[in-house]
Amino acid sequence: MPIASEIFNLTFDAADPRRLAEFWALALGYQLEPPPEGFATWEEALAAWNVPEDQWQSASAIIDPGGVLPRIFFQQVPEPKTSKNRVHLDVRAWRYTDASGGRPPEAEVQAAIAAKVAELVAAGATVSGTVEQYGNAWTVLHDPEGNEFCVV
């Protein structure tokens, strides 16, 4: 019998982990992960753990304020992104209208997508294009470090 498991982190490689963490916190409605209990700041925690000061900006994380969705971790790597992502996130800009899964009218869905795209572009994303398939349309973007994602 397989052992049950769960997602602990989604991890992004990054040149600037804090910048990407702040971008994705905005995109997903997450928040920057607070410092561990007993520490007022991350700097205080890292100093107590003897992490060299030149490594304090090498990672950042965001968490779901509701505590349900997975933590997203951003780790600094020396090499730049060089090719298309093999995995990407889809950010839904709208909510179902009721518990039975009713979708809002298409005009509302498209207005919500346009508003979210505008918000993310203002935060540093770039638009790659729009895709229309099977009666649905979504926008493909790149985050500030070039990682592809979709707003649906």
Rank of each mutant, 00 (worst) to 15 (best):
M1Q: 11
M1F: 11
P2L: 12
I3N: 06
E6A: 11
E6L: 12
I7W: 08
L10C: 03
D13Q: 00
D13P: 01
A14I: 00
A14G: 01
A15L: 12
L20V: 07
A21V: 04
E22P: 11
E22C: 02
F23D: 09
W24V: 07
W24P: 09
W24F: 09
A25K: 01
L26Q: 04
L26V: 02
L26N: 01
L26W: 06
L28I: 07
G29F: 03
G29S: 03
Y30K: 01
Q31Y: 12
L32V: 10
E33W: 13
E33D: 13
E33Q: 13
P35S: 06
P36I: 00
E37S: 15
F39E: 06
F39A: 07
F39T: 00
W42K: 08
W42M: 01
E44P: 12
E44G: 08
A45E: 07
A47M: 09
A47K: 06
A48C: 04
N50G: 09
N50C: 09
V51D: 01
V51Y: 14
V51K: 13
V51I: 01
P52G: 01
P52Y: 05
E53I: 03
D54M: 05
Q55M: 07
W56P: 05
S58Q: 11
A59V: 05
A59D: 09
A59F: 15
A61P: 15
A61Y: 08
I62L: 13
I63C: 00
D64P: 08
L69K: 13
L69N: 09
R71M: 10
R71F: 10
I72L: 13
F73R: 14
Q75D: 06
Q75H: 12
P80V: 00
K81R: 13
K84A: 15
K84V: 04
N85K: 05
R86Q: 12
R86V: 15
V87G: 02
H88D: 02
D90P: 13
V91A: 06
V91P: 01
R92I: 05
A93G: 00
W94G: 03
Y96M: 08
T97N: 03
D98T: 07
A99H: 15
S100Y: 06
S100T: 15
S100V: 15
G101L: 13
G101K: 10
G102K: 02
R103K: 07
P104R: 08
P105K: 14
P105A: 15
E106G: 10
E108R: 08
E108D: 15
Q110S: 09
A111N: 11
A111V: 03
A111H: 04
I113E: 12
I113R: 04
A114L: 09
K116Q: 04
V117M: 06
A118N: 03
E119P: 00
V121L: 03
A123C: 06
G124K: 02
G124R: 01
A125P: 05
T126G: 05
V127F: 08
S128R: 11
T130A: 14
T130V: 11
T130F: 04
V131I: 14
V131C: 07
E132F: 12
E132W: 04
Q133H: 15
Q133W: 07
Q133R: 08
Y134P: 11
V140C: 09
V140I: 15
V140L: 10
L141A: 11
P144E: 13
E145I: 00
E145W: 03
G146I: 13
G146V: 10
N147T: 06
N147K: 13
E148V: 15
F149T: 06
C150W: 06
V151T: 09
